[in-house]
């Protein structure tokens, strides 16, 4: 199995952190081989930002993603830039607060709205990560949760875990959710 995941969004949305946590969860929690890369502009915030995670049970030679099996868009700019470079039957997950898509099969979650309702707009990446965890194969809620706890100090782990669980639950309750079609 080789799973190519691409995240795109703006610098400051936590795109890279979300990808790192996913990579750690697959790599350390589930014992897959992982390779996480990123590209970003010189700006600290606002510039285009892309992160890629390759997950495989074999050696990973080419560490980047050509055609994504899973595409996660945090904002419209990122969506427009990479929405063409996805494989057939790819999982597309978008932050529907900021992204308008014509793709009927895309999974939508108003992540920015959810984060702002919590009063903590910076946890948008955790909401997306929660939703993504529900959609992806071979990854489980506690594995990612453990990596989030590991990554943050105790004082800020709380809101991040809360956002993560909200994202997961939203996707679990969403009518179109179906994580089974990828793997038979």
């Amino acid at each position: 199995m080789r799973l190519n995941v691409r995240f795109s969004g703006a610098g400051g949305q936590g795109v890279i952190l979300a990808s790192v946590l996913l990579a750690k969860a697959y790599g350390l929690g589930e014992d897959y081989n992982i390779s996480q890369t990123q590209s970003y502009g010189p700006e600290a915030r606002g510039g285009a930002c892309k992160a890629e995670v390759v997950i495989s049970d074999e050696n990973i030679d080419y560490p980047k993603v050509d055609s994504a099996d899973v595409f996660v868009a945090f904002n419209q700019m990122g969506y427009n830039k990479y929405c063409e470079q996805v494989g057939k039957s790819a999982i597309v997950l978008v932050n529907s607060t900021l992204v308008e898509t014509e793709d009927e099969n895309a999974y939508c979650i108003p992540a920015t709205d959810i984060a702002e309702e919590m009063g903590k707009p910076f946890v948008v990446n955790m909401v997306m990560l929660g939703a993504l965890t529900k959609l992806l194969p071979k990854i489980y809620y506690p594995t990612v949760e453990a990596e989030i706890k590991e990554n943050f100090s105790a004082s800020i782990a709380g809101p991040n875990i809360e956002a993560y669980s909200k994202g997961y639950e939203y996707m679990a309750n969403s009518s179109c959710s179906n994580s089974q079609f990828l793997i038979e």
Binding site: M1, R2, L3, N4, S56, E58, I60, D61, Y62, P63, D69, G87, S89, P137, F181, L182, I183, E184
Partner: peptide, 27 residues
């Protein structure tokens, strides 16, 4: 350096032993 990695992938493609993408036929 890092160029070895796509080179290795190219060789797997050329020899027809490239692991497939995750798909319905993965099994």
């Amino acid at each position: 350096g890092s160029v070895e990695r796509p080179a290795m992938d190219a060789v797997r493609l050329a020899r027809g032993i490239k692991d497939d993408r995750v798909s319905a036929t993965v099994k």
